[in-house]
Design a binder for these strands. Structure first.
Lengths: 346, 346
DNA sequence: TGGGATATTCAAAGCGGTTTGGAAAGATTG
DNA sequence: CAATCTTTCCAAACCGCTTTGAATATCCCA
């Protein structure tokens, strides 16, 4: 069913039918009703390609999902981020275009979005400390919103981010308050902006209490279950093992826990653990008392907010260009005082 | 840069330039080279929307990601499946269109793919035992490939699936061989086809050994960490707890393990566990000796295969319409003999 | 040298919408 | 009642590409 066919059916011109469906005022209420009814009845919906060719708007948002070339890893937060963003897109009539590319080919993917003109805007994922994609997108002139920040990039850009520094600073302070002095950090890859910020928060808290950050306690790498496990085994085999571990991802935290328990120790008693929790839908951190003490911030909500911002920018609406979300620090059962000896209660 | 501009620049007609770029024979090799060089130099790429309006092909594949309305859960396997499929799409010039919708609105999403004509084909995820989306898509006449099967649907359709029945039958037999007699099943939601098949395999193996499947040992639900944990706690609190647990997802398995250890037991010694492992990129099941004994099948590879099949179908190539992947049964450290008493070795 | 075959190129007609610039009918006004 | 607005509708141009059908240039061989 095309517009032409529908208009013939109604004895109207395509012009009128188009206007009726798009809510233009130059059409009587009676005809509008008639047109709407006929469209519904015949299941007519405008051909996206024709429409966007005519309007110059693609009505689609592009996401580039880079696959880490080394480990072929897909970032597990994408699923939930995209769920949040997708919600907003479909409510506003936008499609989501995904481009899965090895991280080396990412620039080409953005350029092709532009030259092929098949998206109106882009969400940029996983920015590095000084991310070349930002000046690139600025140069291309395509609206975009960054999920995260690129701290050493002075070009302007719109972003939605969690206050990573503060979250990890608070978490570290909390561990210090519990008496911990040797606190390890299991972080994400350190060219990632979020990882740098988290480390900054961690170091700031230590330094403020007169503790020098110890390079032997700081680790960075891809956040997998295996990463958490392997690092923890190494840590706990040291002559002076840490009494607490700060982790950047729930998935690594699961590995950390496995490491702790394989060494015959108990999480929360022998070794404390705080993890960052993106509230992935399949990893809800306990309903009643959370298993893990965590800095918590919903990545799905971040997806919603980023999508909302991008759509507003595309449509020329007035909107803030940056949103900083604060993470909660939720107390779970993975943390406890640092006392080397501890009475079993109950 | 449009085709018209490029052709003016070259002193050629749009027709010739278009043909030159698309490899038609009616253009001299000299002009073709000249055109190609100019296109490259000016960064020309055809406007996707105009092209597909003219050709009638969208050059895009649609995926509908249903969000479980009750738990707002995003299936964690999507990430890796999509990574595999996306690889194939981009190699073949297709875009991936994602539609994230509450599962109730799924049918509308498919219809809108058709009426808006913005995809050439669809991948159907997470089919149920008798999935109404299959006759719907057949009626719509849009090419599609199902990831999984819909066992009680007799309409024809193309699919890529893992041999779930066989995998779980083998896993169960393996546990039986180890002497286990009370084996629990922690399954996915039972309207999902894969869950039914897995249960069938499990029951078949038991029955073949003269053991009647026990409803008290069979559980179905959304496969989250919490699910695995809660069910396990319940099981192990029974007067006659199972000695082995068969799990449908790595994520649930992590919860099961937590449950086991919280009860002061040890996985692999006191309770055996076999899980299905989709080889999610962030959950590689141990490098050397796997942690979990598992029925293993790469969902990313399934994504590649399904995408390949769909592209071939769309392009009218001759291709098999069904692919059944066998899962490996890989031995890890989560299984052991069922002896109630057991000597510690070395 | 001429005429048919062949190699190149192009003008123009879609594809299915939106949008500009009128035109016709109806309502309002002096 | 003629003049002027409004309201309601439409014809035609356009978005940027592909493709059909035809025109022109070049070639080959009698």
């Amino acid at each position: 069913m095309t517009l032409k066919e529908l208009s013939d059916l109604l004895g109207l011109s395509p012009t009128t039918v188009s206007r009726a469906l798009n809510g233009y005022p130059e059409v009587s209420e009676a005809t509008r009703k008639r047109v709407a009814a006929a469209a519904r009845e015949h299941g007519y919906a405008p051909n996206t390609r024709a429409r966007s060719l005519a309007t110059g708007r693609a009505m689609a948002i592009g996401h580039v999902i880079p696959i880490s070339a080394k480990h072929e890893m897909v970032n597990p937060v994408f699923g939930d981020f995209i769920a949040g963003a997708g919600e907003v897109y479909s409510r506003n009539g936008y499609d989501m275009l995904l481009s899965v590319v090895p991280d080396a080919d990412e620039e080409a993917a953005y350029r092709s979005f532009l030259t092929k003109r098949n998206v109106d805007g882009i969400i940029l994922h996983a920015p590095t400390l000084t991310d070349p994609r930002i000046p690139l997108l600025n140069a291309l002139g395509l609206p975009f919103v960054v999920h995260g920040r690129s701290s050493e990039m002075d070009a302007p850009y719109a972003w939605v981010d969690v206050n990573n520094t503060r979250a990890f600073q608070r978490a570290t302070e909390f561990l210090l308050d519990l008496g911990h002095r040797r606190i390890a950090l299991v972080n994400g890859l350190e060219h990632m902006d979020f990882a740098i910020r988290r480390r900054a928060g961690y170091e700031a808290a230590l330094t403020a209490r007169g503790i020098a950050p110890d390079a032997d306690l700081m680790f960075a790498g891809e956040m997998t279950e295996a990463q958490g496990h392997d690092i923890t085994r190494g840590l706990l085999a040291q002559p002076h093992p840490p009494t607490a571990i700060l982790v950047s991802s729930m998935i690594s935290a699961i590995g950390v826990r496995r490491g702790i328990e394989e060494m015959g120790l108990r999480m929360g008693r022998d070794v404390s653990l705080i993890t960052h929790d993106d509230e992935l839908s399949y990893f809800r951190n306990g309903a009643d008392i959370p298993v893990y003490t965590a800095t918590r911030s919903s990545v799905r909500e971040a997806g919603r907010k980023a999508a909302r911002m991008l759509v507003d920018i595309i449509e020329g609406k007035d909107t803030p260009r940056d949103i900083l979300l604060e993470a909660d620090l939720t107390l779970g059962r993975s943390t406890g005082p640092a006392a080397p000896l501890r009475m079993e209660t109950g």
